[in-house]
């Protein structure tokens, strides 16, 4: 057995009010293992606005500024400016937001912070819907998924719009570093976070965050589902360093049905619909390979 590469120090403590099997709990845990104690978090409305616990308690070993839903990027800029004006240099400013708070309501403030090259790391934990409010669709909900606002019925049924490609949006901002991470691959996760920490400027981490209640699945399958998301190329692991794409895990290219079958949110799909998802995933994967090959 090789030497363990995951730091033993914990910066999240028991007491998180997350649901059993919460993927976002693992995202926070691995993130802070990669960043260490000299970190200031800013968190908007999302599951993690509730999960640290009621005042005056917190389950985090780093300080935390709660902010308005759409304001994470602006809060990062404000924190960094104050630290700069006080001459405090060795602190990592982190915005930590859900997918709705990032690709929907928070997109403007994040785009502004990225354009201003605010020195900080923005982490989006992606559970693919507004889970804290009870499973409503977001711009990050994938095609085919059931949510409470995309109910499966006779006329419309499930979500008929594709998930926003937030990594492409951030790449278009010409930021120095962006990466996707998975709770099924903690070594890769922490390595990328540690790498991001050493980069100056605006950095972006897209973390897949399986949600047992929202995805209608058994909490015991969270890591397995996260792994299948990578293996089926539904959620490829890659990084974009100074504009150059590098896929960090090629995966087996397993059929997407393996990933979908654990999740009740996809249980209504017909074989034809699953084939359509497979086709879209294959096309995205080919596009990613082409980007990697062309160095963009």
């Amino acid at each position: 057995m090789g030497k363990p590469t995951i730091p033993e120090t914990e910066f999240t403590f028991p007491g998180s009010t997350g649901c059993p099997g919460c993927g976002a709990n693992l995202v926070m845990r691995y993130l802070l293992k990669g960043l260490g104690e000299r970190t200031i978090l800013s968190i908007p409305a999302c599951c993690w606005a509730v999960m640290p616990g009621y005042w005056p308690s917190t389950c985090l070993k780093v300080p935390l500024l709660y902010t308005a839903f759409e304001a994470t990027g602006a809060a990062m800029s404000g924190l960094r400016a104050a630290l700069d004006v006080k001459g405090i240099k060795d602190v990592t400013v982190v915005g930590f937001a859900g997918d709705g708070g990032t690709v929907d309501i928070g997109l403007q403030a994040m785009s502004g912070a990225a354009e201003r090259r605010t020195d900080g790391i923005y982490v989006m934990y992606d559970n693919e819907a507004y889970m804290n409010t009870g499973i409503q669709r977001s711009g990050s909900t994938p095609w085919g998924a059931w949510t409470t606002t995309t109910p499966v019925g006779s006329t419309h049924g499930f979500k008929h719009e594709a998930k926003k490609d937030i990594m492409a949006i951030m790449q278009a901002h010409r930021i120095p570093y962006a990466a996707t991470v998975s709770v099924a691959h903690p070594e890769d996760f922490i390595k990328k976070v540690a790498k991001a920490k050493e980069v100056k400027g605006f950095r972006f981490i897209h973390a897949m965050s399986p949600c047992p209640p929202g995805w209608r699945m058994n909490p015991m399958h969270v890591v397995e589902v996260a792994r299948l998301a990578v293996d089926t190329h539904a959620f490829p692991l890659y990084e974009i360093e100074s504009g150059k794409v590098r896929i960090t895990r090629k995966g087996k290219g397993a059929p997407v049905s393996e990933y979908l079958r654990f999740q009740g949110r996809f249980s209504h799909l017909t074989d034809v619909e699953i084939a359509a998802i497979q086709k879209a995933i294959d096309e995205n994967w080919q596009m990613l390979l082409a980007k990697e090959a062309s160095g963009t």
Partner: peptide, 13 residues
């Protein structure tokens, strides 16, 4: 909105 949100964060620091 971001102006005030940034002021809030900076003032908190």
């Amino acid at each position: 909105h971001s102006a005030m949100a940034a002021c809030i964060a900076a003032q908190t620091a």
